[in-house]
Amino acid sequence: MAEQKPSLPVVENFSRRAAVKGAFATLGAGAFVAAVSPLRQAAKNSTAAEFMQQHYQELTAEQKAEVIARLEEEAKENYGVDVQIADDRPIPNTKFVYAINLSVCNGNGKCVEACHKENNHDRDTNQSYIRVLEMPKGTMDMEQGSTTYSGAVPKDDKFYLPVQCQQCDEPPCVDVCPVKATWKEEDGIVVVDYNWCIGCRYCEAACPYHARRFNWKQPTVPPEDVNPDQSYLSNRIRPVGVVEKCTFCLHRTRRGKLPACLEACPTGARVFGNILDPDSSIRWILNHKRVYILKEELGTKPAFFYYFD
């Protein structure tokens, strides 16, 4: 092996050189530790139990109870409220479907607000799972729409198109998730395990409906505003750095109640129900009304329909 030791002017002998190299390596390592010291603060906020927690679907009943107790404790600690986190499971023989009457919706945004409050969204950003597009009459091209409209509604030449998670039967977001942190449950709701998501946001890129939200920061909710009626897969306050989405308010709907956005709608444009029940409103609408499916050509098979009078 060819060896021509390049020499430094000052340090010539081997052991001294090694010592200097070692010193520089130590200095470098020390500087690195100092540079990443903000991580220590982040580590303080997470517990070993949280770090080690298994995927939701792998948890036994006791483990789930432990996890939920821990989460309730954390909510108390971080938000100063006593919350009840349930583990609502799908009702057998139920598949949820949503419909919105576009002839009636006037874009008032009460659903957006109700979602914000019901689901313990970040108060600073007015986060919500619903966005409403104001569209000129005579087109279905979203390119012409605007989500930043304001003032008095409805405007004469406009109609309004609320968009939220379509709970697709072929959800691209579920397919792309590398860690199976999001999946479709038996009642059709696509859920996220907020304690398993790694925050890669591939699902956000894959969703054609802008249904997913990322927690860019820890959500802030004043204690008096926290909705204490929560569910593990639904509206419990989300940790920072994970993706969340509309769950059709499963903490309500899996207990037989209607979703918050529907109850808040003053125009009665929203209809929700179980498609497996032949007497359900939703079934009647799909059989009797003209129905529009958002981006149907993408083959996502939404469980969400827009209809007209």
């Binding site: 009702i91 009636v104 109640k257 209607l258 109850e263 929700f272 409103s281 009647w284």
Partner: peptide, 12 residues
């Protein structure tokens, strides 16, 4: 058929 007027309470 529940397609007009809105509702509150339970779907079930």
């Amino acid at each position: 058929h529940g397609a007009h007027g809105g509702m509150n309470g339970h779907w079930d």
